[in-house]
Simulated assay, not measured.
Amino acid sequence: MAEATEPPFRPREKLLEKQRYFQNVHKHTYLKGPFDKITSVAIPAALAGTALFLIGRGIYNMSHGIGKKE
């Protein structure tokens, strides 16, 4: 039975180039990629901001008796 070899996803030179780039960047591990600021900073900040707004609105509504069901 002949063993089939699968071609690599990307050329070896590109892989080595990416490895060199990521090993030389002196940032936190979770901020090394080009879009990591979006996924590691912006999205959690937006979620936290939205949650704080909704909590504040709920407290305001409860303290003023707004939106009660009969």
Rank of each mutant, 00 (worst) to 15 (best):
H64V: 11
T39M: 03
E13K: 11
R57E: 07
Y30I: 09
P8Q: 05
G58C: 07
K37M: 08
G33P: 01
I43K: 01
F35L: 15
H26F: 02
E13F: 10
Q19W: 06
E13T: 10
I43G: 01
A4M: 14
I55W: 05
T5L: 15
G56Q: 10
Q19Y: 07
M62T: 05
L15V: 15
A2E: 15
F9A: 06
P44A: 04
T39P: 00
G67K: 08
A46P: 00
G49E: 04
R20I: 02
K37P: 01
T29E: 09
P11M: 03
T50M: 14
Q19V: 14
P8D: 07
K27N: 08
I55P: 01
L52I: 06
K69E: 12
V41T: 11
K32F: 01
G49K: 01
I59Q: 05
R12Y: 07
A45Y: 04
T29A: 04
I66V: 15
G67F: 08
F35T: 09
Q23A: 06
G58Q: 15
I66D: 07
E3A: 14
M62H: 09
S63D: 11
I38V: 13
Y60C: 03
M62L: 12
Y21G: 00
E13V: 12
K68C: 10
D36H: 08
G49R: 02
A2G: 13
P34S: 14
A2W: 11
A51H: 02
T39N: 04
G49L: 14
H28E: 12
V41Y: 06
I66P: 02
Q19P: 00
F22V: 03
H64F: 12
A46D: 03
Q23G: 04
Y60P: 00
H64N: 13
H28P: 07
R12P: 03
K27L: 13
I66Y: 13
K27V: 08
K69N: 09
K37V: 07
Y21M: 07
A4S: 13
R57Q: 11
A48D: 05
P8W: 05
K18R: 12
R57H: 06
V41Q: 08
G67P: 06
I38C: 02
Y21L: 08
K68I: 10
R20D: 07
R20L: 08
G58N: 13
H64W: 06
T29V: 05
V41F: 10
F9D: 08
L52N: 01
E17I: 02
A48S: 12
N61S: 12
E17L: 07
P7I: 04
V25K: 09
P7T: 07
F22Q: 06
H26N: 13
L16I: 05
T29S: 07
P11F: 02
M62E: 11
F53R: 03
T50L: 15
R57C: 05
L16V: 04
E13R: 10
A4C: 08
A42R: 04
L52S: 03
K27S: 09
P11G: 11
R20N: 08
L15H: 10
N24A: 15
R20C: 00
Q23Y: 02
V25G: 01
